[in-house]
């Protein structure tokens, strides 16, 4: 997994590549936490993600909750079919703001 962070004032765009699984999810989590300060708009670009495990979903869920807690917004962008299927299966599609 590779994550690229693009911070612009209160907005943070995270472009993730690879698979977010049991091994890489904590990595993504800690990288997110490191860039968290003062962010009210979080955009997750999952265009290059090929797999998300339950651990990966947990990271997304946490990010989403954190944004809700500080009255910010989180958008998930460029969800491909594989990931969309996972989101639909787990009902995350109803929870997340997908674009």
């Amino acid at each position: 997994m590779k994550a690229v962070f693009d911070k612009n004032a209160n907005s943070l765009t995270v472009s993730v590549e690879g698979s977010i699984d049991t091994v890489t999810a904590p990595e993504l989590d800690s990288q997110l936490q490191a860039n968290w300060e003062g962010i009210t708009e979080l955009i997750m670009d999952l265009a290059a993600v090929d797999y998300i495990s339950s651990a990966g979903l947990r990271v997304i869920l946490m990010a989403n909750q954190q944004m809700e807690d500080c009255d910010g917004s989180m958008t998930v962008r460029n969800v491909n079919d594989d990931i969309k299927e996972i989101f639909e299966m787990t009902g995350f599609d109803s929870l997340l703001n997908l674009e």
Binding site: L57, L61, Q65, E88, M89, T90, G91, F92, S94, L95
Partner: peptide
């Protein structure tokens, strides 16, 4: 119909 996983959101 798939609903949201349990324990993710109280609004589910």
């Amino acid at each position: 119909k798939h609903s949201l996983v349990l324990s993710a959101s109280p609004k589910a």
